[in-house]
């Protein structure tokens, strides 16, 4: 029945037997209990489920768990290292880049991928990069500021 997969999630190898139809997001949330990755829609538009797969931002509802076999997946739970918050995490707090917090993990993972590609993005480039992530609380104003702040800290 189940298909055997091995996925490196936040630096830890996980072996699981999963249904072929299981989405990566449900694997993370339901099988591994990593509930920091959220589900906000059913059409891959909202971006709340964004994680890094082999370093690239991916909406984990657009991918099957079996497709992640052999991949390295990083979720919001894996962003802090040795108890130190990632600069994006601390800058979201510093710049008030979150309110209800539901879109926040997806925003941070998307921003992490942006800053990997472009260490000094303009406001326009940040807004463009966030096109696939909805936030209903902040009007994006402070999310943009938070990413700018993190970019400064990372360079």
């Amino acid at each position: 029945m189940g298909i055997s997969i091995e996925v490196n999630v936040n630096g830890e190898k996980r072996h699981s037997e999963v249904d072929a139809r299981l989405l990566l997001v449900h694997y993370l949330r339901d099988t591994l209990g990593l509930t920091g990755t959220h589900v906000g829609c059913d059409t891959s538009n909202c971006g709340a489920c964004t994680v890094l797969v082999d370093g690239k931002a991916v909406k984990s509802c657009t991918m099957l768990a079996v497709q992640a076999n052999g991949a390295e997946v990083k979720t919001i739970e894996g962003m802090a290292e040795n108890g130190e918050l990632h600069p994006l995490q601390s800058s979201f707090k510093e710049a008030h880049g979150l309110q209800c917090g539901f879109c926040t993990p997806g925003m941070i993972m998307t921003a992490a991928n942006l800053l990997e590609r472009n260490s000094n993005p303009s406001e326009e480039e940040i807004r463009h990069a966030l096109e696939g992530n909805f936030c209903r609380c902040t009007g994006y104003h402070n999310i943009v500021k938070a990413i700018q702040l993190a970019a400064q800290q990372l360079t």
Binding site: T35, G36, H38, L85, F92, K93, F102
Partner: peptide, 15 residues
């Protein structure tokens, strides 16, 4: 700065 933020930025919010 908000005291509730830490759980949300680390994926430890509980919805």
């Amino acid at each position: 700065k908000r005291v509730e933020d830490k759980r949300f930025i680390t994926g430890k919010g509980r919805y």
